[in-house]
Amino acid sequence: MKGIKWGLLFILYCSQMSIGWSQIVGVAARVNGVEITNFRLDRHFADYLLSQGRSVGAIRSPSVYKRFKNEALEQLIDKELLWQEAQQRGLKVDPARVQAELQKIKSAFSSAESFARRLDKDGFDESGYVDYLEQELAAMMVLESLTRVFSPSEEEVNRLYQLNLRLFERPEQLQARHILLKVDAGADSETDAAVHQQLTSLQQQLSQGADFAALARSYSQDSSAEQGGLLDDFQRGDMVLPFETAAFALVPGDVSEPVRTQYGWHLIKLEQHKPAVSMPAQQAKELIRQQLATQQQAEARDDALARLRADSEIEVLSR
């Protein structure tokens, strides 16, 4: 009775996700006549979601579920194409490599029993799982052979380095706190003077040992008040000119005189001065080299899979 109940719930869930029963038990796609069953797709789908940081239970939208399922199917088609290419090439995977990969996977489980339970849940016995690993490794080997790329030339690396020098530099920056007492744009001189006087009284409290952050939390009318007036690190050009001029004239620990900006009256305390730094050229060029290689490999992978698809007969039955 319990099994029947769970079976009915599963059918209901699939119907809510716009999945027909025939899709569960049938064929999702054919690749050069080789069937990819929905059982195989569902098994791969769980791994695909895991790689995306998701789980089936967390997906509430049928359209999102369908999109991920289609992406998983396309990935599975690519895997099948690579495996077929490996077979055509007569490529063999060293059994020792397969066993090493198996032991690596087993070591992630707390016991042999928990590993066996996971295999059973995924529809494998150990022999079948070894065959699956062999196919996965063979597909990877074929893909590597199809996507070999040359190391970027030094000329190209140097050219990109010179074009992007600013990306490898961090300009001079300040970490500061401030207290802002706002003055409306249309305020008269008397109102402005009253706000200035209020800020001056806070300045006197600071000179007598009051804590700047505590005063900012109590009196500042800026969104930074909750953080004790702490601002995000800023560089020249980030702040309005009167604020910038006053802040960059301070040394760490200093508090400015009252500063008038378009927003009102400020007191500024400099917490930290961070001088400009540049990434060493050799390190920056290595990053460029790695990025170029990654980009070229991704493009080569897409091209290789596109060629395999163009030369193959692919029939998608489940969407």
Rank of each mutant, 00 (worst) to 15 (best):
E226H: 11
L137D: 03
L181S: 07
Q297V: 01
S18M: 13
A138W: 02
Q23C: 02
L230H: 06
C14W: 05
S18A: 10
G53L: 01
L146Y: 07
R177C: 07
A225T: 09
D188M: 06
V277N: 11
E74L: 13
T294F: 10
M1I: 10
E101K: 10
V31H: 00
D94S: 02
M279R: 08
E134R: 09
D238Y: 06
V27P: 07
F150V: 10
G33L: 00
F168Y: 13
D131W: 07
A214K: 02
V25K: 15
Q88N: 05
R217T: 09
P152K: 06
L41D: 01
S153Y: 05
I36Q: 04
I288G: 04
R177G: 03
A249L: 05
L91P: 07
D120T: 11
Q99H: 03
D125P: 10
P258W: 01
D131A: 13
V183I: 00
R307I: 09
L50C: 07
E172P: 01
Q88I: 05
A138K: 00
Q75D: 14
F45Y: 12
I11G: 07
S15E: 14
F39Y: 07
C14K: 12
A276Q: 11
K69F: 07
M239W: 14
E126V: 13
E113N: 03
S223V: 11
D254E: 15
E71S: 13
R89M: 06
L8S: 05
C14H: 14
P62Y: 03
L8A: 06
L137C: 07
F248Q: 10
L76D: 06
M140Q: 14
L180N: 04
V98P: 01
E85F: 04
G253T: 01
L91R: 09
A216E: 02
G26T: 07
A300D: 08
V316L: 02
D233A: 15
Y263A: 08
N164L: 02
S51M: 08
Q162M: 04
A249F: 00
I105Q: 15
K79I: 07
F39H: 11
D232R: 12
Q173C: 04
Q88K: 15
D78G: 06
E134G: 04
K66T: 13
F168S: 05
R97L: 08
A249I: 03
R177A: 01
M279N: 05
L165K: 11
Q99N: 10
E271L: 15
A225W: 04
G3R: 12
S61N: 13
A138P: 04
L12W: 13
R260L: 10
F124T: 04
M279Q: 13
L250C: 02
M1D: 12
I268R: 01
V25T: 14
L267R: 02
G20E: 15
H266S: 04
E172Q: 10
E80F: 01
L267Y: 09
A298G: 10
Q221H: 03
I288H: 07
D94A: 05
Q272V: 08
Q295R: 15
D192R: 15
